[in-house]
Design a protein around this nucleic acid. Structure first.
Lengths: 343, 343
DNA sequence: TAAAAATCTTTACGCGCGATAAAAATGGAC
DNA sequence: GTCCATTTTTATCGCGCGTAAAGATTTTTA
């Protein structure tokens, strides 16, 4: 490592003995120059640690190597799990991912898209907040920037959607619980923040009807993204009001279930599938913490890996197709039922 | 909103009737131009939605408005809680925060610093991975970029450190548990990833000795950041080996405690402070999920708000001081003991 | 109302790199 | 040793904006 500081590509080209345009070509694609040239450049690179100015690069390139990743709520380990995988894969593809969280705030979501627009990203992976998202603003953004939606679908918006098949989630748990005990009631928020919640409720009702059973939906009140607390308070209220007619509950999502289990514990309601238990609780998502609830939570898990991988692959396909698909693509991955102690 | 697209500041200056240098001045500081001029620019801004090219700006400004935020492990809601607050405050100050997670990987941590360096940030808020961090690389980075460390201190590195006072955490819980029952054993990982863990253990031993009690440390094996699973398996092993001599445990951190509580539940060991309970468990951090464990977790919580605010304020003070302090600053905030059902 | 101060316009240059066209050099096959 | 294809060099422009200097204009001060 020499002590002379390289200020720009011109100087680096000089010390490496290669012309600047060739060096520039190298940085855009190391394989586009002759092997011997590449070696000389890389030798110089080892000696003087030079890196092209990222701002100058992005200013001049028509398409940057930036990729935006937007999640609705970062305090949710569920999204982190996916974002982390996506991030790594983007880096492996030679792109620079930037992660943003809307923190459940639709206005912030729009701000993020605005910021993202000015980054001129090659593409964006967006998990919208959902119900309260500003549809028209997102639609406008998607017209400007190649965007793949994931997790929450907004009909017709974006070039593609990658997510989970909500019916597969609910049908597996309903079938399992019904087969091994009583059919479950469905436990959800009155005004869900996320469109998946509605799909899951509808799937529950359809599934119950298909089995010739009467669906029973328990709606708890609460707004925002503090799902655990909403589940806990809703759980207490459910017991107090005697709303529960069965000994089995299927929660709309794991975070709600974590709160419900907390309420059950506080009330001394024993949850599980052993004979001494008063209640069985199952849920959806495969939340990283679901293994550590008391009892451990039976849940229909997202196929995290497939969703992440497919999202990234679809995005890069989109980028290579010039940012547009002929028809909007949708891909839904089935759930994987994880049997644990709670049901 | 007119339909004519503004391509650059030149064109925007034309439609606003103001010269380009003045418009440039406005975007750097709206108050640096005459009120009447500002109004004319903002009128044009409302009509044609123009935004200066971020890459061109950053290329030419000596100091960008970028701020880097680096956390060691994003799947930990604890860091998200802090990062979220910091992020918002940076935006409010007119800066552009970028959030990165090292995902527990020291090599990735170095990569992030490398990426960050090329973003020429005005300053960086860094929570190092800790023990396994590449000290010399971080040190090198801090020489180039004004950096404030938070959460994990690396002695002498960075211009300042903002964190929590580990002794305050442990002393409060030890005092409380001893006063209301038996003195606790200390439950931790054998090779903690984080320097705070060592400080907490030392504080525990010192506190016990101060009270004239014999300290008892239980070290469970496990590497990496899957603290919950390490706590769970370690908990089982602790019971099997009969390592536990007291009826009270203080965990090094909440995530470990979540795993331990899970093990207790699986073994039918009732945790809590009521007479029918076999064990009391307390912990440290104030993890967002600690409210929802079974039983709810008594924990010494970080003062999230103070740590976040002080970190941001220190960083901006640093930036305004030209990136250097005369002497390295350190600030430790005391814990707030949250009494819940587990102890 | 004149002078002083503040602000704006004009002109011009530089930042570091991408992109391109034409000229020159290189290397491999025969 | 010649020829041709490939690669590199040379030269030059443009991206969008920061910034500086000099002169013109407006506002403030006395």
């Amino acid at each position: 490592m020499s002590e002379t500081k390289i200020r720009n590509m011109e100087e680096f080209a000089a010390v490496s003995g290669i012309s600047r345009p060739t060096v520039s070509k190298y940085f855009n694609d190391p394989d586009s120059v002759r092997a011997s040239t590449r070696q000389r450049i890389e030798a110089a690179l080892a000696q003087y640690d030079y890196r092209p100015n990222i701002f100058a690069i992005n200013q001049n390139r028509k398409l940057t190597k930036n990729v935006g990743i937007v999640v609705p709520f970062m305090a949710d380990p569920f999204f982190i799990e996916i974002a982390r995988t996506i991030e790594q894969r983007c880096i492996a593809m030679g792109y620079r991912p930037s992660l943003f969280s809307a923190h459940g705030d639709p206005a912030l979501e729009v701000d993020i898209l605005d910021t993202l627009r000015s980054l001129k990203p090659a593409g964006v992976l967006l998990a919208p907040i959902g119900r309260s998202s500003d549809r028209s603003e997102i639609e406008k953004f998607c017209r400007d920037v190649p965007t793949v939606l994931f997790d929450s679908n907004l009909n017709g918006i974006g070039e593609a959607f990658i997510g989970s098949d909500n019916f597969s989630f609910v049908s597996q748990t309903v079938e399992y619980m019904t087969r091994t005990g009583e059919p479950p009631s469905f436990f959800e928020m009155k005004t869900p923040a996320n469109p998946n919640a509605n799909k899951r409720r509808d799937a529950y009702i359809k599934m119950m009807e298909r089995l010739g059973l009467e669906p029973h939906v328990i709606k708890v009140k609460g707004e925002g993204w503090a799902f655990e607390e909403i589940g806990r308070q809703g759980g207490h209220k459910m017991f107090e009001d005697g709303q529960l007619k069965t000994n089995a509950i299927l929660c709309s999502n794991d975070r709600l279930a974590i709160g419900l289990l907390s309420a059950c514990y506080e009330r001394g309601v024993k949850v599980g599938r052993t004979p001494d238990c008063a209640l069985r609780v199952a849920s959806n998502d495969g939340h990283p913490f679901s293994r550590f609830t008391c009892p451990s939570l039976t849940t229909a898990s997202h196929d995290y890996e497939s969703v992440s991988n497919q999202s990234v692959e679809t995005l890069f396909e989109l980028i290579e197709s010039g940012g547009r698909f002929d028809t909007r693509r949708e891909r839904f991955f089935p759930a994987r039922l994880i049997l644990r102690d709670s049901a």
